[in-house]
Design a protein around this nucleic acid. Sequence first.
DNA 1: ACATTTTATGCAAAGGTTTGCATAAATTTT
DNA 2: AAAATTTATGCAAACCTTTGCATAAAATGT
Lengths: 339, 339
Amino acid sequence: MKRSNTTITDIAEKLGVSPSTVSRALHDHPAISDKTKKAVVRLARKLDYQPNLLALNLLQKKTNTIGVVVPEITSYFFSSIINGIQDLVNPMGVNMVIGQSNESYKEEKKIIQTFRAINVDGFLISPSSKTKKFDHLLAIKENNIPLVIFDRDCEGVEADKVFVDEYSGAFQAVEHLIKTGCRRIAHIAGPPTLSTARHRLKAYKNALEKHKIKVDDDYILTCKGFTPKHGIAPTKQLLGLEKCPDAIFAINDGVAIGAMYVIKEAGVKIPGQISIIGFDDDPHSSYFKPSLSTVWQPTYEMGMLSARLLMKKVNAKSHDPKIRVESLFPELIIRGSSF
Amino acid sequence: MKRSNTTITDIAEKLGVSPSTVSRALHDHPAISDKTKKAVVRLARKLDYQPNLLALNLLQKKTNTIGVVVPEITSYFFSSIINGIQDLVNPMGVNMVIGQSNESYKEEKKIIQTFRAINVDGFLISPSSKTKKFDHLLAIKENNIPLVIFDRDCEGVEADKVFVDEYSGAFQAVEHLIKTGCRRIAHIAGPPTLSTARHRLKAYKNALEKHKIKVDDDYILTCKGFTPKHGIAPTKQLLGLEKCPDAIFAINDGVAIGAMYVIKEAGVKIPGQISIIGFDDDPHSSYFKPSLSTVWQPTYEMGMLSARLLMKKVNAKSHDPKIRVESLFPELIIRGSSF
DNA sequence: ACATTTTATGCAAAGGTTTGCATAAATTTT
DNA sequence: AAAATTTATGCAAACCTTTGCATAAAATGT
């Protein structure tokens, strides 16, 4: 059997009717007689007719494909967001192409260009940590292509957005450390370009202030990435301070895991001497010794919600300028690395 | 600015020539005069002409999109394979749609159906662990759609294939355990439907036999999945044996991590009393205490190579029935969980 | 000056589907 | 029986690009 490729014209010819009639019959158009409809449908089934989506795409200027742009896919965080997107979108007959910016503005821009060239119906974007100019995103808006930004904000870009309430999660985490007796709490922060990192840092400071603990800049370090490797150097630096911290709030689980490794290596007790808390609830986190306390984020839900907002715009008859910003709630998970 | 959508006809009209001339001019066709070419190219640039890929797709019955079908994307293993695919394919102007079977034959079949409907130019597939019938894959072959199977074999399906030499990796791992003094070596195996799991099991047995160690069925357990959670129960069972093993070779790092957790919890020393070795070299593995010995697999390279084979078929002028089967080599990485 | 070749361009079809408008046939109304 | 309405179908355009073939114009050869 070769590529079947039965066309509507094939059916039309065999039945001695016009292609238009076949098309209408297949779409159950009221102006077609029942007799014709039945004949068409039967023959279509028999010949295994599959509509040529390429022709449809051209006609409708629509591809039923959305473009998803993320910094990377190898972390559980983003791959589970993608799962959420996929599970929402696939049942609607929509597919998705994925692009990884690798935290590079240039690559991000190129991906968006490519995706525009292939006429994606909409964009779901979480910008890279290097992205400071938003020209590429604004261009999407200007061309009236639906766009939803998720997880990481692009201030100044008016678009539907879906975030996690980072502030609340981080505040809870730090307050938990304080309540369990920690006073010299350090924070290994993320790149300040990231809204997520900024909100967590802000929450960290505010939580300390609320409890009358002085914010000490020596306790605030910035890491360049999100894997255990990136947690090593900052942690060593913290351990070298004359007033060693008694807790570390890390920007995410990856970094926290790196931190734990260094601390255990140094023979310092977790949580006896230093408590640790991460962010994201990576599936590995509960299997460390001690298991890592963390802040769970509704990643799958974030993917679903973002995709839902996007598809709403994509399917809207008229262009609705109203923008929606949604917030999802994280959850503190206390495990063994803190009291 | 609305969607620009300058067409070749727009340019033709403004220049008072025919669309064909514009098309040829843009493709540097020899029959077009330099004067016309220059005028066309200049105006095209000025109007920011972008060829309409949808029209091209229809004309060429080609989408420059490939379909990638994997069991899941949340593991590092598959997501880094996807990275390799992406990095090979994107520079060629080819995009990829991803489908996750979630280890379900039914979902896998559905994904393939969808991808065929959107006319992907080729398939890159790693079958689910439940896939025993290959009708959906054979249908791809029958319709002459290029197909490359990677990592997990589908015996009986004649297609290009790219594997890792599981046998060699597993054999090295087990032999390493033997050479470091272990004699009661257990294996937590994967689902026997998976070629990868079968090869590792085979290598395990052969390595034991080579060193005159009796294969004991009590030491061979099967797990249902690849995350730490799936390592818990089998490990508990092993610890409960009257002759507790002195080493565990786990099907992958995920399961090994679960095993380590249980063993540490039980107060048994790693590697003093039990050595552990995993498979995959998950990025987390080196940060556990002890760090996990494992077998590294060239996942990124596997993705690249698979994609390279696929694109070769996709771009081939004539249908070449010759099939290629490639093998990549894994590497034993000794860390702290074994001597 | 005429025949032949070369050069530059246009026409029209093809790819498959949808849809507004026109039309033919059948039915109902006067 | 003629007129008006309803019902069922077809035509052709549109979506945009490429390409084989035809043709017109220019250049070359005799």
